[in-house]
Design a protein around this nucleic acid. Structure first.
Lengths: 181, 181
DNA sequence: TTGATACACTCATCCAATGAGTAAGACTGA
DNA sequence: TCAGTCTTACTCATTGGATGAGTGTATCAA
């Protein structure tokens, strides 16, 4: 239902957060996880093993390359860096629209802001514009769904009403946030 | 982080929706799924196979009993009904507080209203009270977290701010909803 | 010197969700 | 009338995220 593609392209996991950190400089899993927890801990809840498993997937997909750094007597450490493909994927994502749902905004959009302010601060205004537009269009869609709802479906209507209210709140929040930049 | 228990007791799946429908009268999987989709389709997105797998789990847990209805030449249909345990679990859930998160409210609380209005309309007011209290206490917790946040964590703060705004919206919405009853 | 904490990563397991598959009756229209 | 499709009813294999515990070394303080 329109949310399929968003899943695949937009990604609702901290994947991009990890990719984004590596965009700055190579690092290893341990640090990346620490950084996500400390800088975006309220945005994503990411366990260590989750972090490693996502990184493994990214490697399998060819977004990340691994260099084994051998140490005498110590187990090898794995230094991760973005491949060209990974850099591209991250950059694409960075200018892509976040989904319209509240959740996506709290997670994806905030993450995007985090990286935009580091890597492309000149694009921040644009990102806010885009996000507001997304929210508005989502509101429209929900309003249509609401108007098409038979009268007796009061619980479906309540649910839609809440989502609509939440999205209006999102718009307010976006305006307030923008003042931080 | 305090949301562990809520997961287990409160349940964030349509489990209770299925249990609740059976509380009214026995039925089989197919109908239950149809009913959820039509009455609560905006609240839960439940695929058919999901429905069946939840029902199977409920059976394994002893909340549901199955009666095979044999038909000549046709494959047997399975008539499901609540066991005493299942009835009890549903009733407990019906008066339990929903979680404080927006998501939980949109899904769990609305579902609770759906069944309360059918089975125990006299408890509706109480449920609204309870839910408002929950939301308030969640707001408090978030405000504490926010105040403890170091100044430089602006993205974590943004995320918390959004959640706080959302919860305030929830309170408004609760007041409006209550007028429907 | 020993015990705690930080570093860095691995692994087994569970369970939910997906999507496709099966199968038989009932209806529908050319 | 008979091909085609819709509805009823349910099953199953696979995927893949999330959890939680485990592993082993280094380092530092008491």
């Amino acid at each position: 239902m329109a949310e399929h593609k968003a899943h695949h392209i937009g990604t609702l996991s901290p994947e991009m957060a990890l990719l984004g950190l590596l965009f700055g400089e190579p690092g290893h899993g341990y640090d990346l996880h620490r950084k996500v927890v400390s800088d975006l801990g309220q945005v994503w809840h990411l366990s260590q093993s989750q972090a490693y498993s996502i990184l493994k997937r990214l490697e399998a997909q060819g977004d990340i390359s691994v260099e084994e750094i051998l140490q005498e007597k110590l187990p090898a450490r794995q230094l991760l860096s973005l491949t060209a493909q990974g850099r591209q994927r991250f950059l694409d994502w960075l200018s892509a629209p976040s989904g319209g749902s509240t959740r996506a905004i709290r997670m994806e959009f905030v993450t995007r802001l985090y990286f935009l302010s580091q890597y492309q601060p000149e694009k921040l205004t644009e990102a806010f514009q885009l996000q507001k537009a997304e929210a508005l269009s989502h509101i429209e869609r929900l309003e249509i769904a609401r108007s098409e709802l038979p009268d007796e479906q009061i619980y479906n209507r309540m649910s839609l009403d809440l989502r609509l209210k939440q999205l209006t709140t999102v718009l307010e929040w976006l305006d307030e946030c923008q003042k931080n930049f």
